[in-house]
C-alpha cells in the first residue's frame, strides 16, 4: 500500500442504541484499513461504543433525534476517532474511577465505559463548547498496533 494522504471519513447517525452496531462496523472497517490488528481494532470499537452509549444516555438523555457525528482521522501513525454531539456538555473530571464493590451494593454501574475508554485507547480527550458542541477524541497509535 502506498502511503496515501490520509482520507478522512465521516458517519452521521441519530442518537439511538440501534445505531451502535452501524458505528462499530464503520470504525472497524476504517481501523482495518489503517493497518491495526484485529485485537487492537476490537479495543478501538469498544471504546467508541462506550463513548457513543454515554452520548445517547447522558448527553441526549435517550432523546432519539439527536445527532452523533463520527469522524476518522489519520495523521502519521496516529488514528483518531472524533465523536461530536450537540447534547448536554460532559464533565469528565466529575466521573470517578469505577468501584465495583460500591456498584454491587447499588445494583448498578457507572463510569465503566469511561474507564474502558481510558484503558483501551492511548489518548482520550474531551472538548466542549457550551451551546455549540461536545467532542470526544479517541486516539490509538499505529506503532502500538501489534
Amino acid at each position: 500500500m502506498e502511503n496515501k494522504k490520509l482520507k478522512d471519513k465521516m458517519l452521521v447517525v441519530q442518537s439511538r442504541t440501534n445505531n451502535l452496531s452501524t458505528i462499530r462496523d464503520f470504525v472497524y472497517a476504517a481501523a482495518l484499513d489503517a493497518g491495526f490488528s484485529v485485537e487492537v481494532i476490537d479495543n478501538i470499537i469498544l471504546a467508541v461504543d462506550e463513548a457513543c452509549t454515554n452520548i445517547i444516555k447522558h448527553a441526549y438523555k435517550s432523546y432519539p433525534e439527536g445527532e452523533i457525528t463520527i469522524k476518522l482521522k489519520r495523521k502519521d501513525k496516529k488514528f483518531t476517532v472524533v465523536i461530536i454531539d450537540h447534547g448536554v456538555p460532559f464533565k469528565p473530571e466529575t466521573i470517578p474511577d469505577p468501584d465495583l464493590q460500591k456498584y454491587y451494593r447499588q445494583h448498578k454501574v457507572g463510569g465503566l465505559g469511561m474507564y474502558l475508554m481510558k484503558s483501551l485507547m492511548d489518548e482520550v480527550k474531551y472538548v466542549s463548547v457550551p451551546g455549540k458542541y461536545n467532542q470526544v477524541l479517541l486516539s490509538k497509535n499505529l506503532n502500538n498496533a501489534n
Binding site: 462506550e50 452509549t53 465495583l100 454491587y104 445494583h107 454501574v109 465503566l112 465505559g113 474502558l116
Partner: peptide, 17 residues
C-alpha cells in the same frame, strides 16, 4: 462475540438479589 459495559451492568443489576 461482543460485550460492552452496558452488558456488564446487567450482571451487576441482579447479582445481589
Amino acid at each position: 462475540s461482543y460485550i460492552s459495559s452496558a452488558g456488564l451492568g446487567v450482571f451487576m443489576a441482579f447479582i445481589e438479589k
